[in-house]
Simulated scan of single mutants.
Amino acid sequence: MLYEAGTARLTMGEIRERVSSLTGKSNLQLDRRLRSLRTFFLVPAVRDPHHRQRFTYALHGWQPDADQRTARKTIRASDRALTFHTYGYRCAACGRTPKDDHVKLVIDHKVPLELGGTNEADNLQPLCEEDNHAKQALFSDHEENTEALRASLSLPEAHLRIGELLKAMNGMEVPKELIALVAREENHGDPTKRMRELRALGWKIRNSRRKEGRRFLSFYRLDSWEPWPPGGPKAAIARMEHARKQARRLEAGTPNAPERET
């Protein structure tokens, strides 16, 4: 059906309508089928510039390495149930629920399969359809940086993932949204804070903002960096924070005061 549409871009509603007219069925889990299709074919999600919650799709041909790919394995039912339960049946991005907000939740791979992710439970999260499509569109916008994304997404710490992505982009501006996806932090981790922490390690990172449509978007660009400290950036930042607190206590004349939990 996408092949027959040629270069015409279809919304998910139009896809559902056409498939329903052909099969006589309306509940065909089209989002999951579209994700499976992407294993072998280029089907980017593009955000409608006039309606930011609407996305369109078109078939652009085979994936460059389609002959080396294997079909997506089905996620185990137990892992799907565990994922929904772990997140309280809420979208991991916006927090909305099917019961209260009438959204549909789908299982998303935090690290996409095509970028080295797996079907294991720790790589799964529930997203509402809107946020799932937005994530697909953002990755589609950066298909030329696939290798940079693949290399950074597999690293064990958020600071490492963000830093290596910035390095791999070779001085290009990186949108804050992409930084947040690569950071893969629960509870809406703050990319702005991570940038401050990387700067504390000696990294030179510029921040810029510009208006696109009705929104102001933030971008980061790496000018220079320092080698990763022994033990990793997270441990080094924790040591710096501890030293800073100790210095404050000394200035206040209470060097032995216990630390407050944060």
Rank of each mutant, 00 (worst) to 15 (best):
K204R: 12
Y87T: 10
D100S: 02
P191V: 09
T7E: 14
A66I: 01
T192N: 15
L201K: 08
G95K: 08
F219Q: 04
T86E: 07
F55C: 05
L153I: 04
L201G: 01
T254M: 12
T56I: 02
L198R: 03
G171I: 06
A58L: 12
L34N: 11
P191I: 02
S140F: 06
L250H: 14
A180E: 02
T70S: 13
N207I: 05
R248G: 06
K110E: 15
M195Y: 01
P230N: 15
A151D: 15
E185S: 07
K204L: 09
E14D: 13
S154V: 09
A257D: 15
L153M: 15
D65P: 03
L222T: 00
R239I: 10
E173P: 05
L59Y: 04
L59F: 14
A257C: 13
G61A: 09
I15M: 04
T86L: 11
S152C: 12
C128R: 01
V111F: 09
K25G: 03
C91I: 02
I107L: 01
R249S: 01
M172K: 06
N123V: 13
R260V: 03
F216C: 15
M12V: 09
I179N: 01
E226Q: 15
E251C: 05
G231A: 05
N119H: 10
D141K: 10
R72Y: 01
Q136N: 05
P191T: 13
R35D: 15
G116I: 06
F84T: 02
S21P: 03
A148Q: 07
Q125M: 10
G232C: 14
T74V: 03
L250F: 11
A236F: 10
P64V: 01
S26R: 08
R69N: 07
T262K: 10
A121W: 04
K211P: 03
R214S: 08
P227I: 11
D131H: 14
R260K: 11
L198V: 06
D101Y: 04
L124K: 03
G163W: 00
E129R: 02
A235D: 09
A148M: 03
E197F: 05
L222Q: 02
S20I: 07
V111E: 04
P112E: 12
L165N: 03
V43Q: 00
P112W: 06
A257F: 14
H51E: 14
P175M: 03
A77D: 11
G213L: 11
L28W: 03
N123Q: 13
M1S: 15
R248M: 12
